[in-house]
Amino acid sequence: MPDILEPALAETRAIDCSAPEVQAFVAEALPDGGQDQRDRAVRLYYAVRDRIRYEIYGADLSRTGLTASQTLRAGGGMCLHKSLVYLAALRSLGIPGRLVLTDVRNHLASPRIRAYIGGDVFHYHALTTVHLEGRWVRATPVFNKLLCRLYGMEPLEFDGTADSVHHPYGKDGTAQMEFLHEHGEFDDLPYQLVLDGLRAKHPALFVAEGGDRFTAGSLVADAADRTA
């Protein structure tokens, strides 16, 4: 492995790839060990996407709450949490991965979440980039199949050869998600940058000013409200 990739393999506080919870998750997702690195990365992608509940409400943005091991104990999290779990799982197998942070416009946000966000632009949306077969490919193991069905979205697939970031349009041609700005790729979670940015851009999402937890709620319940 080239030295330049070593930072993308390192264990960090947030990407705690040697934690028992991460090791158990990987073992369950890959009981046969996987055929090769691409096969392992793809199967881990689907394990993170569909076995970990996606939920923005109640998100714990403390340093401990954003660790991969804590997200696995909790069983759910938002894009940051799930992307960090995926990176921890990849790195535990020697597959380099980095965190990607972007600002996106989500056309499918519910009225309630729009009110909390202050519109339809969400800042510091997280995904990943994975080094496979000599090149970097992007993967977004975030929106699980149930949530996609409730919001009329196609689940995002990943085969380890092509970027998987998000479908801009639904089956009916309506806009779904638009990428507006990229903050960069990171070998580790830039914790203070993300927390300060979210506090500044989405203050109504937090339970308390200067806090590190989002207000309670349910995206599943919001989906029902959208169609009522």
Rank of each mutant, 00 (worst) to 15 (best):
R63A: 15
D187R: 04
A41P: 02
V85W: 01
C79M: 07
F179V: 01
H181E: 14
D188Y: 09
A228F: 12
L193C: 07
D212W: 11
R73S: 11
A109Q: 09
D188W: 10
S18G: 08
Y45V: 03
P141L: 03
T227C: 15
S92P: 00
C79T: 12
P141N: 08
Y151Q: 03
R199K: 12
R105P: 00
T161P: 00
G211C: 09
I56M: 09
Y86H: 04
F143S: 05
T161E: 14
D120A: 10
T67W: 05
E55F: 08
D212F: 11
R91H: 04
T129P: 06
L193F: 15
H107F: 13
T64M: 15
V220Y: 11
H202Y: 10
K201F: 05
V42Y: 00
P111K: 05
M153C: 11
A24Y: 07
D32T: 10
G119Y: 02
Q176G: 04
D50P: 03
D172H: 09
Q37H: 14
Q35N: 09
P203K: 06
G97M: 00
A59I: 08
I95H: 02
C17L: 12
L219W: 04
R51A: 12
A139R: 00
S83N: 06
V207R: 13
R49M: 06
A204S: 14
Y86I: 07
P7Y: 08
R135H: 14
H131K: 04
D188M: 13
T102N: 06
E154A: 08
P155C: 07
L44S: 03
L127S: 05
F143M: 09
Y116E: 07
Q192F: 13
T12P: 13
E178L: 07
F186I: 08
P7N: 11
G211D: 04
R40L: 03
I52V: 14
A162Q: 13
R13M: 12
G173W: 02
A47Q: 10
Y169G: 02
T128P: 07
L5E: 08
Q35I: 13
P155N: 09
D172K: 09
G184C: 08
R63N: 10
L87P: 01
G197E: 07
G34C: 10
A223Q: 04
H167C: 04
R43V: 05
L101P: 15
G211V: 03
V26I: 09
R112K: 13
A8G: 11
L84R: 01
L198P: 00
E178A: 07
A162T: 15
R112I: 13
R105T: 09
L30S: 05
G173T: 02
D3H: 14
F143L: 11
M177H: 05
A224S: 15
R40K: 14
H181T: 06
T128H: 01
F158M: 02
D212P: 00
L195K: 01
A208V: 15
V142G: 00
